[in-house]
Each structure stands twice: as C-alpha cells, then as structure tokens.
Design a protein around this nucleic acid. Structure first.
Length: 420
RNA sequence: GGAGACGUGCCGGAGUGGUUGAACGGGCCGGUUUCGAAAACCGGUAAAGGUUAACGCCUUUCAGAGGUUCGAAUCCUCUCGUCUCCGCCA
C-alpha cells in the first residue's frame, strides 16, 4: 500500500510506474473515489458533531426527534461510504510499490546481470538432470507423492533428507553469525496477514491454499508470518534493526504455472525455506538490502555453486517490491529453460519492500523526536530445500552417478559423497 | 473438545446508557528545589482520519465485527484471544 496523499500529488508518476510494472489500475477512478470518500467523511463528521453537541445533556422531545433525523442521515451516508470504501480499497490494494530508479524497465526477460561467479562445470561424461540423478539414487519419490497428496508433491528420502537438513543448518548458522534471530513460524496465517504482505488469499490470481471453514491459509513463505509477527506494533529500533531468519514449510498452488519449468523439484507445491527478514528505518533499507544479498552470496559461494546475480526488471517485481535481486545458479534443466537465459535457475530472491508492507500491516518505529514512522521491510532467501539441492545435484554429479557433497556441508551430512 | 471467568491507555486498575479519551496509582518527559542527585511539589504524556497557510477545530477508537438507542467502554449477538478446571495428546 502506498500513501494516498502521495498518489493524489503524483498521479502521473504513479501511472507511469504502473505501466512499467505491467499493472493496469484505473488511477483516475481511484482519485475520484478518494474525493467522494473524503466528501462523505466530512459530511458524516459534521452531522456527528451536531449530534454530540445535543447529547451532552438530557434532550427534549423535539431535540430527540431532530437527532433521530440526523441519525438516519448519518446512517445513509455511512452505508454509501461503505460501498465507496469497498471499491476504493479494492483499487488501492492493486497499486504496486514505487520502483527503484536503477531497476531495469521492462518485462521478465529484461533483467540485468549484475555479477557472475564461479565456473560452470565441464563434464567428461553425459550429465543428467537432478530428477534423473535423484531417482537413480533412490532419494526422491514423486509417484508416491502424487498417490498420497497430489501431483507435484514428493517424498524426499535418505541422503536427500540429510542434505536438506544440512543446508538448513548451514544457512541458519550463517544467518545467526550475521545477527539474525532464528525463528520457526506457523505454517498457516490469517488471510489479512497474507494480504498485508502482498499475497492475494482469494480470487483468480491466488497462489495459496485456503483452509476450509476458517480464515486461514497455508503460507507460501515465512515472509508472511515474520512480517505479521510485528503487525500493529511500534518498534524500538534504537539498537538497530530487527533481523530474523525464519524457517517454515511453504505451500504454493502454482496455478497456471504448468508449461513453465516444471521438471522435477523446480516447481513443487511444498518445500522448506529459511527466510531472512529485516525491519529497519527507511534510510537504512538500501544498505540492508545489500547486506541480505551479501549473505546470500556468502551462502552460495560457500557451497561452490556457479551463479549470477540479476536485477529484476520492473515488469517482474510483483506488488510489494521496490527493488529485487535474484541469485540464479547454473543448472542443467534439460527439460526447458529455468530462466530466460536457459542456463540459470533462481535459487534466492532478495526484496526491498520499503514501507509498502509496513503500511498495510501497520508497523512503525519510534523516532528520536518521539514521532512514529512506518518501517521498511526486506526479505530474502537464505536456503530453499528444493532448488538448492537441484543445483548441488546437477553441478556436483560424477561419472558414476554419485554426488560430491560441498565441503561446508560435510560435517552436517556426515559424508562427502551421496551414492547408492 | 466440554465447563466457567475475563479482555479498558506504556503498565496496574476504576468505571453498568448522557460534558469518560476515560477517575486513581505507577512509569516516562519537562519544570521548581539542589553543588549535584534522591525525595517532595507543579505541569505534560495515544493513534488514525477530515479541515486549516498556521494556531487550532471536528470525527473516530475502551480486543474485533455487527446490532439496539436521540446517545454505548457501559445493553444484545457473533468472532478472536487470555486464564482456571476437565478431557485428549507430542
């Protein structure tokens, strides 16, 4: 959510920004509704003031009659206002965040490569993709995942489980070293928290599973629960920002995603993720955005994966992000392009959401002068237990079909090679 | 899951239909006093929205939503949460 005052005063900028982001919202209609809305509020306030004036003492019969009429009028205006509010909020919620001036303008394929690290592997044998490798090693079972739950669910087994745990532990220790407080969160959240973070819990574009007979949904990322953690609070940031590394299961319907890269583990309905989240002062958010990216790079560097860092273009930022960096690891992905380059697949994503989420979730901090102001929120992936293993299996496979475990994981995994 | 109690400001805690944004106490901030401090005394201490050039004025908010009423923190309904007891369980 943006500041309606800002939209009023910068309508043209907002329209251009929406266009860059590929979002079609009728800004003029929103501003009309805003005017109408304020007009109604003004009238209601005036009538209420009248009524309050008369209710100070015990009113006479005539006064009661008069006040009854005022009351009716207020009620009518309020019901009109309620209707206006619905459309107003519906439009307002669809306006995306402002955009960093350096974000490349364009669609999904117009990303900018900022950095490239590591050497792509050279195999002196025919390399396999992760699905084949995992099936051969007996560490994954998609068929039974489909039997028990649905297609695109899976059972991880044996050393894949150990690898997942090792990755999470490795990532968590790295995050903790950087001052992030470790957290396990609920795997469900109220729909109002989902929308506050920018997920749409209902409607055609929804990406989440709803829980029947309740106001809850399964979370698509711990970003939702950690963001909600401080909702409605005024934070004390005098000792620095609030930094959390939160682990949760993540559930995604991936509706409409078929046909995109869907081989193996790349796009599944459930995975586990360690998410970094920061609540900070507005002037610090660009700095912590860099810090999150640096930690992600440290994690991926430690694993020895070849990767590139990309600056996400305006058309692919989603609603809440002001700027977003993804790390894409080199992958085989024989089945189709993981990213538009055809060679790299997203394994992490770091977003600066400025005050967009904080406004909706009402998260502020107290400034030195005692006033309050919305915080900035940032989030980034530390570890994901689906795409990290993809990259590890595909990059570190050997001629006999076994997988060389990255050095940093060996102490957690207890072995240096995953083999039959 | 069953039975009961409760949910008021930064905190404790009054308040059962009409100057109650809310007594009283604590905390915090400012001042007086003091060489300084403590104590004492005095004053201040919410947020959101509307309006205004500004001072200010107005509206809303006593868990949340809805209802009754000319008028609700106070009455009614539902939801959420907390506590106690029972059951169940990791």
């Amino acid at each position: 959510m943006l500041d309606i005052k800002y939209i009023r005063e910068h309508a043209d900028e907002i329209k251009q920004n929406n266009k860059n982001r590929g979002v079609d919202v009728n800004v003029d209609r929103l501003l009309d509704l805003d005017t109408l809305r304020r007009d109604h509020i003004k009238q209601i306030d005036e009538l209420r003031a009248q009524r309050n004036q008369s209710s100070k003492g015990k009113p006479s019969k005539e006064e009661i009659d008069k006040m009854r009429k005022v009351g009716d009028e207020v009620q009518k205006l309020e019901s009109d206002l309620a209707k206006i509010d619905i459309e107003y909020h519906e439009l307002f919620a669809r306006i995306p965040n402002l955009t960093h001036p350096d974000s490349p303008v364009g669609g999904e394929e117009d990303f900018k490569v900022l950095e490239t690290h590591g050497e792509k592997p050279k195999f002196d044998f025919e390399p396999k993709d992760h699905e084949q490798l995992m099936l051969d090693l007996g560490v994954i079972d998609f068929e039974r995942g489909a039997k028990v739950a649905a297609s695109k669910f899976y059972f991880a087994k044996a050393d894949l489980v150990r690898l997942n745990w090792a990755l999470v532990t490795y990532g968590a220790e790295m995050a903790a070293r950087h001052g992030f407080v470790l957290m396990e969160t609920p795997d469900m959240a109220k729909n109002e928290i989902l929308s506050g973070i920018g997920f749409n819990p209902r409607g055609e574009e929804k990406q989440v599973y709803n829980i029947a007979d309740s106001d809850l949904s399964l979370i698509g990322t711990a970003e939702i629960t950690v963001g909600g953690f401080h909702s409605g609070e005024v934070l004390d940031l005098s000792d620095g920002p609030k930094k959390y590394a939160a682990i949760s299961h993540c559930f995604r319907t991936e509706a409409g995603a078929y046909g995109r890269t869907s081989k193996g583990l790349y796009r599944v309905h459930q995975f586990t993720k360690l998410e970094l989240f920061v609540f900070c002062k507005p002037e610090e958010s660009e700095r912590y955005h860099q810090e999150i990216l640096e930690i992600e790079k440290e994690i991926v560097n430690g694993l020895g994966l070849p990767y590139q860092v990309i600056d996400i273009p305006t058309g692919d930022l989603g609603g809440p992000a002001y700027r977003k960096y993804d790390i894409e690891a080199w992958m085989i992905m024989k089945d189709g392009p993981a990213s538009p380059t055809g060679e790299y697949g997203e394994i992490t994503s770091a977003s600066n959401c400025t005050d967009y989420q904080a406004r909706r979730l009402n998260i502020k901090y107290r400034k030195n002068d005692g006033a309050t102001e919305y915080v900035h929120t940032l989030n980034g992936t530390a570890i994901v237990t689906s795409r990290f293993p993809i990259a590890i299996f595909e990059n570190f496979q050997t001629a006999d079909g076994s997988i060389l475990v990255p050095e940093v994981l060996r102490k957690y995994l207890g072995k240096e090679r995953i083999s039959k």
